[in-house]
């Protein structure tokens, strides 16, 4: 009985805190709009098989280059493939590329940044100078170089985009770790016999989640954009996989006569990135304790 009440009050309290963050996001109309758009895109991506009118690779040369109509809502491309279906399937690819490459960057960059910030001194210098070298190369150029050396393909695309984003996360995590490292609870953790790894992963990193989450959300948008750019120049996904950037690139030669072939994938990219940026900004405001009330 006693433990049951304990558990319920605890969950209630935790729910209340989560609720507070959600409430604060809810007060920003832009963040809500972003969340709604993202939810729709996620829904489309997950249920693409059911929602899309036809399969993304289904060619229908009889209907090539058709403008938007009742049958093909967003028109067809040079092989008569339904652009709407391709955009819906493309959501899968873009979101996957975005989240997985950010995941790679976050894990590697996060660990590097945490180690650099925690140990300081020569370790810090070594890691951060390496990151500086990576940062001194424009990230799109770096991604192009990596993608070119790994060869085209979806998997290599994610790795390339991920590696190019590592330095940003390393820097952010290092900064947060530096601000947390000096706090007394870290020393207290050391005084109870915790190992360095335990202190970094259990005590320090959970305390710097807020900036990482915000950067991650914004980073997904950048990653999608970079991936689209790489696909556009032919280093990303290979046909017939309907990546949005690849679709843009495919429609490029017909842009004068059939602008909708590039217009609609472009809008899809723009909407997704806009939504992610809105959510990222909203999260930053909601997680920033200084802006409370």
């Amino acid at each position: 009985m006693q433990t049951a009440t304990t558990a319920t009050t605890a969950t209630k309290k935790r729910r209340k805190e989560m609720g507070e963050v959600i409430h604060r996001i809810g007060r920003s109309p832009m963040a809500v709009a972003g969340l709604v758009i993202l939810a729709v895109i996620f829904f489309l991506a997950i249920f693409a098989d059911v929602i899309a009118p036809v399969h993304y690779a289904k060619q229908n040369l009889m209907h090539a280059f058709e403008p938007p109509s009742a049958q093909f809502w967003l028109g067809t491309d040079e092989f008569g493939r339904d652009i709407l279906s391709r955009i819906i399937y493309g959501a899968r690819i873009s979101l996957m590329v975005g989240f997985i490459s950010v995941g790679i960057a976050m894990c590697v960059g996060g660990v590097l940044g945490a180690v650099a910030g925690y140990y300081g001194g020569r370790t810090d210098n070594l890691i951060m100078r390496a990151m500086d070298i990576l940062l001194s190369i424009p990230s799109i150029l770096l991604a192009i170089a990596i993608a070119a050396s790994l060869g085209p393909g979806l998997f290599n695309l994610m790795i390339a985009v991920g590696i190019a984003a590592i330095p940003q996360y390393a820097r952010i995590v290092r900064g947060s770790v530096l601000s947390i490292r000096g706090q007394e609870f870290v020393e207290a953790a050391r005084a109870v016999g915790s190992s360095d790894a335990r202190i970094i992963f259990k005590h320090i990193l959970p305390n710097c989640m807020a900036p990482i989450i915000v950067q991650g959300t914004l980073g997904v948008a950048t990653a999608i954009l970079v991936a689209a750019g790489l696909s556009f120049i032919g280093l990303g996904t290979q046909p017939p996989i309907p990546e949005w950037g690849a679709m843009l690139s495919g429609g490029r030669s017909y842009i004068r006569d059939y602008p909708y072939m590039t217009l609609f994938p472009g809008i899809a990219i723009m909407l997704t990135i806009l939504a992610l940026n809105f959510v990222g900004d909203g999260l930053r405001d909601a997680l920033d304790p200084k802006l409370k009330r």
Binding site: Q183, E184, F185, E187, A188, A189, R190, A191, V192, G193, S194, S195, H203, P206, N207, M209
Partner: peptide, 22 residues
């Protein structure tokens, strides 16, 4: 590491900051 906490424990000056907030 096994001595710290196990055999010798320490209480720090400021309780406000010596607990992990999360």
């Amino acid at each position: 590491r096994s001595v710290r906490g196990g055999k010798i424990a320490m209480i720090f000056q400021d309780p406000m900051t010596s607990l992990n907030p999360v």
